[in-house]
Nucleic acid binder design. Structure first.
Lengths: 346, 346
DNA sequence: TTGTATGCGTTATCAG
DNA sequence: CTGATAACGCATACAA
């Protein structure tokens, strides 16, 4: 690979017959440059196909021009959506997106020990990764603005959905269909990623039951590690109960996929015998005809990025109306498909 | 947010009673530092919790310490896997992962016009994004090593699967089951992402038919834009044929998901009446019991990153044995699940 | 083995 | 409006 000698600002200055200071001013279109000069500089830069060295610029300004995006599982649908949403905004703002995938325990530990973000980013965007107090203080030690997606963390702006309202809406849908015996497939806290979201959703599920005057049955709440296969196992367990549920509410679509599969394998009709409902509106959900609470994940990512851009004083995108408060709630929508139907006659 | 004044190398040097040159040498553990001095320096750095400014370091060395990862759709399973794989290696190598998501036409155009990667990365990793000649020369103009995943590009090291062999293995499986009337769901070239892979897979499909002595039927090859819904529509069209296929081979699992859905909706038994086979081994495939050609996408991403690290002279990970050649072929495996079975008696 | 001095390519502060 | 010039924080020949 040929190492191309880079054109420097000095080269441009020489060609345009001005000083490098003028070149610098021109290129960042500052006001105090004569129109004639400006044209000469721009033409010289054009002819030399010059681009500013971001690194030198960063050293001089003290800003890194980058945002660190910290996520547990880059390859999952939800996180991919957030990344894509954030990327679209950051790109428009001229900010680099530095990706840190710290899903497994070892990676996470190293991340917080070595702190690769130090002196490297102007802001941090953390996705669905609640932190321990220790981790949180480490992050604060970075001294840069931070925003989180998918959960709340004290003192940090966040973008998420209203968990309680979302779950409640879903439960209402099932109640409306006459279901009373509703199971929930929840995720299990593992060592790497603690998901208070799971807790919130379980709580909301119980609250909805209570409000509807339905006695909760502990057997109907199953917690499994998040994986596309565990929803199936959980459902198999539910079906093995003496008094199986008429509806299964999965904490996320991916778990619901498993539920649908288990039901189909067991030859149990959906929704004639059992209804299934998820949360996300995953790409595959439409295919599987899964009723779900749609959340706009891409938008949550872009919103979070906008908040950061604003915090950095970068005016690059149309401001969002409700970005002021500490927590931005992105609305969710019930998408009714074929996986939910009237409760079978008891 | 409080702006924390950064500790500089000079502070460490002062505290350790040495020059900054010695600090610099120590921190990059060069040999020529006295053990005693080294300890003093390390302790001083520790006490001040000092970290080197990557930016200053980069300006001095002339290397950016970053790799640009260019992909069309960050939120799709395949790309998420590649990203995760690349990230794991790059992190170990101390390289930043700069993500560029250029799926839509506008973003792609801007990417090649502005060339945000110029002077910003030491290497480029492009994923399943064949380039036009113009784009290719632009990339070469970056003057940095490059590697591609998922396809070949002249003069660039690549990591991919053997398309022909993969498709052939899949077809053999169907032939072995007695299928002769095999449809293929292929992807359609759109403006944003041209996928020669689609072409290769169609060609391999036809070649396999020819070798098996089966007359190809143009009606059985359907091309649709890649989306989780189009596989379903394509399958519906196939089922509407006078002489519908007994097996459907989808270019990717996501399309196969649609096929499964369409069949289930039409009340057609899988695999009793129609077999379905995909390529990828997507997370959801196991759930849907889809027979598929598994490709290790995460590994392809990490392999590509290793090739780049090596090209950059960074010795950070165990070298791969077969990384020498221009193209690294990652093996694929037929994963037999429940979606394929013997052809129904004609 | 250690220190000095110069350069890396900008930005920003001053004079002019 | 423009041009010197000093940071920016580190790496690295070169000296000592």
């Amino acid at each position: 690979m040929i190492q191309i000698p880079h054109v420097s600002m000095e080269d441009v200055a020489r060609r345009a017959g001005v000083s490098i200071a003028t070149v610098s001013r021109t290129l960042r279109d500052q006001a105090n440059v004569a129109e004639e000069t400006r044209r000469r500089v721009l033409r010289a830069a054009e002819e030399l196909s010059y681009v500013v060295s971001p690194i030198a610029s960063r050293l001089a300004t003290g800003r890194t021009g980058a945002v660190g995006v910290v996520i547990p599982y880059a390859s999952r649908w939800y996180f991919g959506q957030v990344i894509a949403g954030a990327e679209s905004v950051l790109r428009d703002c001229g900010l680099d997106l530095l990706l840190y995938n710290v899903g497994d325990q070892a990676a996470r530990k190293r991340f917080f020990e070595r702190q690769p973000l130090r002196r490297r980013v102007d802001a941090v965007l953390a996705v669905a990764m609640p932190f321990t107090d220790s981790e949180l203080s480490t992050l604060h030690g970075l001294g840069v603005p931070m925003t989180v997606v998918g959960f709340d963390s004290p003192g940090i702006p966040s973008v998420r959905i209203n968990e309680a309202a979302t779950i409640d809406r879903a439960m209402q849908h099932l109640f409306d269909l006459g279901h009373r015996r509703i199971a929930m497939i929840s995720t299990y806290a593992d060592q790497n990623v603690w998901l208070p979201v799971a807790h919130q959703r379980r709580t909301a599920y119980l609250a909805a039951l209570a409000e509807a005057g339905v006695e909760p049955d502990p057997q109907l709440v199953i917690s499994v590690p998040f994986s596309v296969g565990n929803g199936e196992r959980a459902t198999a367990a539910l079906l093995a109960l003496e008094d199986p549920p008429t509806a299964i509410f999965a904490e996320s679509d991916e778990l619901a996929f498993g539920a649908l599969t288990a039901l189909r394998r067991a030859g149990i009709g959906v929704p004639e015998s059992v209804s299934v409902l998820g949360v996300d509106d995953h790409d595959v959900s439409q295919l599987l005809d899964l009723t779900t609470m749609r959340q706009l994940v891409f938008q949550q990512g872009s919103l979070a990025a906008k908040i950061l851009a604003k915090a950095l004083g970068i005016d690059c995108v149309a401001p969002e109306p409700d970005t002021e408060s500490g927590t931005v709630l992105v609305p969710t929508t019930l998408i009714i498909r074929g996986s939910t139907g009237p409760a079978p006659h008891g």
